[in-house]
Amino acid sequence: MSKIHDEMDEKTRAKGAFSRRGFLRGAGVASGALGGAVLTEEQAEAAQAAAQGPGAVAISLNVNGKEQKLNVEPRVTLLDACRNQLDLTGAKRVCDRGTCGACTMIMNGKVVYACTVLAIDAQGRQIQTIEGIGTPQKPHPVSTAFVNNDAQQCGYCTPGFVMAAKGFLDRNPKPTYDQVKAGLGGNLCRCGTYVGVRKAVLEAAGKKG
């Protein structure tokens, strides 16, 4: 008996939290604080549990250290949200099926294929795109090493490769040549720039190829 009661109670609570969340959104805040009032953990959890969509949903993404608010349908991938709505077009849509690595981003410190992450599911994570690790004026060492070693031709796979290489080097700061080869097995290039990529990653790791 008491179990059923608990369940009902939970459902009721979820409903209530959802309407509060709706109110918050109506007030122009998608999540987090409103005038100092913070959702309790319980409320936040319950709100998440309620189904959202299928229409566009207000979400908030932490991209390159910045909170970005956007409206997306739940079916929009992180890649498409970044490319189409945030104009972060460094990550490319190539296979769109989690094979080629051109869309590689770093999420909570780990490399991922952004084409197989839903934007709505990327909320609350630290998302790093190629735009977040450097600029042409102040490039990340991996980007510089790619230029120095001509690790790019048409360049369409390059941002994904740079992100994969950065993610790899963050975990393996002093890799061997063989580790480089094994560590970048999730990215494909069509022009055939792998020779340069290997050298670039070793150079960026402070080693000479």
Binding site: N84, L88, T89, I130, P136, V147, G155, T158, V162
Partner: peptide, 21 residues
Amino acid sequence: YTRFEGIEKSTGRAKYSSDLN
């Protein structure tokens, strides 16, 4: 010489037609 547009490409700033919004 290293390629002119190299740094644009390797920092993800090179805009391909498919990148245009």
